[in-house]
Write a protein that binds this DNA or RNA. Sequence first.
DNA 1: CAGCAAAAGGTCAGACAAGGTCAAAGTGTT
DNA 2: AACACTTTGACCTTGTCTGACCTTTTGCTG
Lengths: 135, 135
Amino acid sequence: MIEIRRREVAQQFECVPSQINYVLETRFTPHHGYYVESRRGGGGYIRITRAMVRRSVGTFREIVEEIGSRIDGERAGRLMDQLEEAGVIGGTRGALIRGALRQETAGIDPPLDEVIRAKLLRVMLMIALHDQRRG
Amino acid sequence: MIEIRRREVAQQFECVPSQINYVLETRFTPHHGYYVESRRGGGGYIRITRAMVRRSVGTFREIVEEIGSRIDGERAGRLMDQLEEAGVIGGTRGALIRGALRQETAGIDPPLDEVIRAKLLRVMLMIALHDQRRG
DNA sequence: CAGCAAAAGGTCAGACAAGGTCAAAGTGTT
DNA sequence: AACACTTTGACCTTGTCTGACCTTTTGCTG
């Protein structure tokens, strides 16, 4: 996790500050395994957090792509099957995730349920796969 | 509970006294769990009292209750502040969760955004706290 | 006691200091 | 030419800092 000053970085790369936003938007997305926060005003900053240790970035990225912007319960279940079989996710956590997906999307009408399911699955896997020991 | 002298603190931070008011107004509000009194005149002071006993780590159940069925970005941020301060969640994970909350709720109109934010926060904390317990 | 001076802290508008947005222009590829 | 990607700059929003001016409290002095 690092914090940068947009202005400073822009100076280092000899580009305009908004260029930094472009790079962040295209190269440091959740899709790529990064999350970005920022604050304006004096003393502002941009904080970039890598969701995955380098080795699992590829895995996470593939998972995110597989999930997409929406996912139905059946596909989510199969994805979890695969992850558990591959040993990426343990059985206990797998059960937690499945349970949470079911509970949190219960009673939500299509097509919204699939969008929310995708979000939930994505963030849960991100936290689960994030290796805390290096944080 | 502490008492400060506005002038002195301003000198320590090498800023103008009114700056102290700004910080108190933005960071030590009842919302943040603080209560501020002051007295003018000779021998005046500013007394800052932590109104809420720092939530003692809080079980997951209490956290879930705190979140409720919907939560706005500000309250979510303060809850994360508390969890980080209490050492329940580390800085990197905290940043990840904050980033994920922001990204995944971006562009979702009220009042749905708050409902989704609650779901996301709930499941991420669930995974994070569960993971932590196992060391 | 009345009155004034000094010693706090309070307010608020405006300057300043970040970062954000977006459309247009530039560049490279098919 | 058409398309995708990158770069730029004008303009916007948010958060912080400052200083002039105000109010309250205490102390001193006649």
